[in-house]
Design a protein around this nucleic acid. Sequence first.
RNA 1: CGGGGAGUAGCUCAGUCCGGCAGAGCACUGGCUUUGGGAGCCAGGGGCCGCGGGUUCAAAUCCCGCCUCCCCGACCA
Length: 486
Amino acid sequence: MSGGKALTPQSEDFSAWYNEVVQHAQLASHSPVRGCMVIRPYGYRIWELMQASLDGMFKDTGHENAYFPLFLPKSALDREAQHFEGFAPETAIVTHAGNAELEEPLVVRPTSEAIIWPILADWIHSYRDLPVLLNQWANVVRWEMRTRPFLRTTEFLWQEGHTAHATEADAEEETVRMLGVYRTFMEEWMAMPVVTGLKTDSERFAGALRTYACEALMKDNKALQAGTSHNLGQNFARAFEVRYQTEEGEHEYVWSTSWGVSTRLVGALIMAHGDDAGLVLPPLLAPHQVVIVPIWRDGEQQQTVLAAAHRVGQTLSSAGVRLHLDDREGINPGAKYYEWERRGVPLRLEIGPRDVAAGVVMSVRRSVAEGAQRKVPLAEADLGTVVPVMLRDIQEHILQQARAHRERNTVWGVTDYAEFRQFMEEGGGFAYTGWCGSAECEQRVKDDTKSTVRVIPDEEFRSPDAPDVCLCGADSLCQVVRARAY
RNA sequence: CGGGGAGUAGCUCAGUCCGGCAGAGCACUGGCUUUGGGAGCCAGGGGCCGCGGGUUCAAAUCCCGCCUCCCCGACCA
């Protein structure tokens, strides 16, 4: 177990806090290669739980998993001009195998469009072959300048959906549907509220027609792009000659989409819910939903207490609860409390001689609503029904807490530029403003305030108070959500 | 990739200026006593001092090159 006492408080240095949580909660550690991390079992388990949930949702919406190769010929990337321009600066290129120089260098995929579309061109011939609804779980490499564990690593794990459709409307429907799947996952599983909407041209995926995104607000009031869904139009179909024959016998390019979320979501989870005591995990994604800490003074008590702990464990397992019994000897209960709190376990059950005698266990929640009891004794006989209810309640509470944080740090209509600037300087958060639609204006605000347009919000997320003028004073084309971002 | 800081035991660091046996606390192992919010005593184990080269009788320490991490910028999931 890692030593150390208190973490750096979030208010003192948020990124130091973040790095310490990653280390001390045993989520990840560094590797010898720049920007590459080792995902440790506890962190990987969170990712596995995310994968399991998302994978089910993808399958429920008709997608199938496949796997495409890690390498693509360098020439393939060049096929779509914008795509190439977008990714060329950050690709890793293999030029040698052993001592021999390769005839054509290979690119390690930064994303798989350029690998998948040449293949799909062979698979798709007729309107009867459409839609193609694929997903793959894979690793990709992007040689970013500045890396941070989970948030931006040189190699990262993700899923990438790739679909082909007969019509523009079908592709758009798919793009929006998958954005909705992401939103549902983020809110229901990660307990992380998001704003969804359209990206501006400057933040659009290289080669896409339109990029939609889920934007979440972290505890330090910076925004994190948590997932993206792209309507690729016919751009990739044209670049890779993916055509199908219509019912009428015409040859048409397919309409395609791609969408992805990555291990960045683990970073999002840390920053959306964590506090000065460490990680706070939503029960649905917690490797251990419950940790049982037995307490004893002598061998006899140890036997009694452990027997009770195993009994409780049986009950909870049968009730579908993921639990861990911390029966390590020679470590005081208090030390175990600190450790599991730092690692974000939603619910702790303490079982001591007094509890066994009384037929109860002491439950302690990792996070509770203000004014609510953190420690509550529970009758052992009721655990099978009460604990699952508590876990659902904790899940809901964490979501509400994150929602409240976002509401507290959102301004719904800013017209005055000085006011906007002050908001971004004094803590920041989401600011709804108008936007004239000009890229120059967007860039100027970015240079000046470090804040960017996160999204042009979807209808549901629009502000009734959004101004009809841009920050530059010109007429507003649409309302936008601005924030400083990761 | 530019500017700044750092790398010595698993972790946090002292030692580097001024070259001369590799250190502390925590963690780890064993024993005894403990155990309801970070236990105590005793005994132990653990080091390519980031890597490579150079200077020197002698390098953690001085010189050169590189790698990695952290912070600030430009680039991005």
